[in-house]
Structures are given as structure tokens and as C-alpha cells.
């Protein structure tokens, strides 16, 4: 099992999640982060840290979110590990408001 970062992360990239992860399993690209399922230890420490509720435990994914398991696994191979917080992207707050969070 694992945890996955879903669509809410896109365009925000609040990286509070990264600071809470004990095993450095987040990977980052220009717009968002992904979790490496081979490293994630399922502790859920990142879930409450994310201000836009982007992170979901695999078993809690809705049917229409299942594809995020594969997307996270593949993207984690492609993008570098992120170990420390980054400033949120421009427009992150706007997106957060748009999501109603």
C-alpha cells in the first residue's frame, strides 16, 4: 500500500507535506509533488500537513481517483526527491481558494 498525491496539488505546491515526511519520499516537478510508493511507509504524517487535502491513503481513493496510484509511482521515478520545503507557486493561494479550502 501507499499514499498518493492527487490533483489538488497541481498549481499549489505547498510543500508542508515534505517537511512532515520522515522518509523523504516526495518527488517534485514544476507544478506539483508525487509520492514514491516504494519508500512511503504509510505513516500518514503528511495528510494533515497538506492545506488542500491533496494526499490520500491508497485505500481511501475514490473510484475515479484510482489512476493516481500509477501516476505517482511513475512520476516518482522521473522527478528528483525533494527534502525541504519550497515556496508555494505563484497563484497557490488563489487555487486554494478556488478549491474552497
Amino acid at each position: 500500500m501507499t499514499h498518493v498525491v492527487t490533483d489538488n496539488c497541481r498549481g499549489c505546491r505547498y510543500t508542508d507535506c515534505v517537511a512532515s515526511c520522515p522518509v523523504a519520499c516526495f518527488h517534485v516537478n514544476e507544478v506539483r509533488v508525487y509520492i514514491d510508493p516504494a519508500v512511503c511507509i504509510d505513516c500518514s504524517a503528511c495528510i494533515p500537513a497538506c492545506p488542500v487535502h491533496a494526499i490520500v491513503e491508497e485505500f481511501d481513493l475514490a473510484d475515479d481517483q484510482q489512476h493516481w496510484i500509477r501516476i505517482n509511482a511513475e512520476a516518482a521515478q522521473r522527478y528528483p526527491v525533494i527534502r525541504a520545503r519550497l515556496p508555494p507557486l505563484d497563484g497557490a493561494d488563489a487555487r486554494r481558494q478556488q478549491l474552497g479550502l
Partner: peptide, 19 residues
Amino acid sequence: VTGDPDHPMTRGGLCVKLK
């Protein structure tokens, strides 16, 4: 039940076992 964020080891997180 949550982990104490101020504790230098716990750092706010527990583990999968105690979820």
C-alpha cells in the same frame, strides 16, 4: 490520537501501526 509536533523524535507523526 496524534503525534506531538514539538517532540524532536515524534515530529508530529505516528506510524502506520497506530493509525
